[in-house]
Design a protein around this nucleic acid. Structure first.
Lengths: 221, 221
DNA sequence: GCTACTTTTCTTACATGTACAGAAACTTAC
DNA sequence: GTAAGTTTCTGTACATGTAAGAAAAGTAGC
């Protein structure tokens, strides 16, 4: 004879939805309809509930996005083969994080809201800190080194995402153009020199180059 | 005899408010009541107009904030004495930008929306690019160097602002604590080692240290 | 004067995140 | 059974940014 599915022991009204269900539905919406369609109302109807019911499982929309990122990272982050040289280890670990984050631009609004110290990322943070220690840095400085790498990485992602968003809304008169339009070659000669190539130059992906420079500089202390 | 204030020649309904007036009022509100009170409605009543009238002088709220930042930077940015050594020049210029931005946390939402290529900042960008060129970098690499510095700077500001915001809302169970609560010393030994000092370590201001490392690494190419 | 045109302002309306106040659906104690 | 307590859910309401269109206030040509 079939039992009642799970004889609950906790008091109170039994939940009809769960945090996992919310995250799953949110991810579906994100995937199929884009980040703009991911609203609390849309999400509620997706799981057959009401907007405010969500707030019993998630503090607010930002936390939901953080949880989504956690979930995504857990499924996506694969621990790479780490090179033996500590400096390379730092770089590979940072690049792995960067790669995952760069692939999901929707987290940008939350990227800074929590500094990516989610559990799946901890191993990578460990590798970075440990790599710096193996480079000869004292532990405290190694942590600061990780912070510097994180600042650089988070900045790259957010700035690049903003640039992409700006390109997408091509109708607006691009701010940069107007600034670059009348550069005074006496005042800012270098900028005037590259003005026409600025767009192309800044479109290049130089994350790894900058990262290596940063790590080199940090390890050389 | 007093003339009618300015015999207009342009057709159309004469404007009752100006962009400058909007920015001025916005700044007053920002200063006196904080960024949370700076809403389009509040701003409209401040200058005796209606919310939608603002939109004829400003594309949207983000652009308003960018304009505000421009205005603020124009009044605040003072060109510092630049050292002779190119590497130091880059650092001083970057620190000047950082100092101004760090002082007004309200721009964080816009920081990335436009990459600070506003006119008052151009001189500083020039100094950074020129400093890298004088370090021996080809012009293209110098521009990339500036980008790296900007990524690092923007990241530092936004991440730090987010951390401050999080500290301000001290009621919520801080995410970081829960992540750091049960660190497995076998899995992440370094992190477990610094877990109790993490908060203090990351609260330190290490912007300049990281910047120097980055610039050193970039200049060494 | 009047009409056409232009530019700015105002009114109304909507989507969004979320606060707040109960109502609903359980368990436990009697 | 009933009462108390706890947790989850629902309904309503508000502040916000802003889209769309109507109205207002001018100029230019007649």
């Amino acid at each position: 004879m079939p039992q009642p599915p799970a004889p609950r022991k906790t008091p109170g009204r039994p939940p009809r939805i769960s945090r996992d269900e919310i995250i799953g539905a949110a991810f579906r919406i994100l995937d199929e309809e884009g980040v703009d369609r991911l609203t609390m109302r849309r999400l509620a109807t997706e799981i057959g509930s009401t907007p405010m019911a969500l707030y019993h499982h998630v503090r607010n929309k930002d936390e939901l996005l953080v949880l989504l990122l956690d979930d995504y990272a857990t499924r996506t982050l694969r621990r790479p083969e780490l090179p033996a040289r500590p400096r390379e280890r730092v770089i590979v670990a940072a690049e792995a994080i960067h790669e995952v984050l760069a692939a999901c631009p929707w987290i940008v609004t939350v990227l800074t809201a929590d500094d990516l110290l989610s559990k799946p990322a901890l191993w990578f943070v460990e590798q970075i800190v440990d790599g710096f220690v193996d480079c000869g840095l004292p532990l405290d400085q190694a942590v600061h080194g990780y912070r510097a790498v994180w600042y650089y990485t988070a900045g790259e992602i957010t700035v690049r995402a903003a640039a992409a968003r700006r390109r997408a809304e091509a109708d607006r008169p691009i701010h940069r153009e107007s600034v670059f339009a009348d550069l005074d070659p006496d005042e800012v000669p270098r900028l005037a020199q590259v003005a026409d190539r600025w767009e192309a130059l800044t479109a290049q992906d130089t994350y790894s180059d900058g990262l290596r420079a940063l790590v080199d500089g940090l390890a050389a202390r």
